[in-house]
């Protein structure tokens, strides 16, 4: 996807900054809102060039819906994996089976790849070691399948179906 127009990128940055301001102040007082808007406009003017390349296209309803659906899905995956690792830590025999596996991703977008790598790292039991093109090298605490396809099916695919839509 090529770069969106400057205005679209600028507006998107303003919206995101203003949302963060709203969360941080948690107040609907007109003075607070006005000052937050002024600050967002100034900071966005300085930073929009490195903040986003897609601009307002990121706020497409389908993408936002998938992003919202991704949050509980991801939290659930994270909690389940945490319990799995907790079991491995507490079990007297320490049932680990670690190794570094290779996964392939279907994502093309750089930001999408970053989001996938971060999601993998945040899920306990897997850490992204390195990315080279579409190859992910992942340290996995319990290697169930060391082939590229098997590992991809286990690690990257559950996240990809969401990230594919969110980041295009």
């Amino acid at each position: 996807m090529g770069e969106a127009s400057k205005i679209s990128r600028y507006l998107y940055t303003v919206i995101v900054l203003f949302l963060i301001w709203l969360f941080l102040t948690a107040s609907l007082d007109p003075q607070e809102l006005a000052f937050g808007l002024i600050l967002s406009l100034i900071v966005a003017a300085l930073t929009y060039e490195i903040f986003t390349t897609n601009g307002l296209a990121n706020l497409h309803p389908r993408r936002v819906a998938y992003a919202i659906a991704y949050v509980p899905y991801f939290l659930w995956a994270m909690i389940m994996a945490n319990l799995d690792v907790a079991y491995r830590v507490l079990h007297p025999k320490r049932p680990i089976n670690p190794g570094i596996v290779e996964c392939k991703t279907v994502l093309k977008n750089e930001v999408g790849k970053l989001a996938l790598a971060n999601s993998i790292t945040l899920t306990p039991g897997t850490i992204t070691l390195d990315i080279d093109g579409d190859k992910y090298f992942i340290h996995w605490i319990d290697v169930k399948d060391d082939s590229v396809e098997g590992a991809s099916k286990n690690i990257t695919e559950p996240f990809e179906k969401f990230l594919k839509v969110i980041f295009g």
């Binding site: 670690p98 190794g99 570094i100 596996v101 290779e102 390195d130 290697v143 060391d146």
Partner: peptide, 9 residues
Amino acid sequence: SVVDKYREH
């Protein structure tokens, strides 16, 4: 450890 694909790569 069972496998090290990164070293192979």
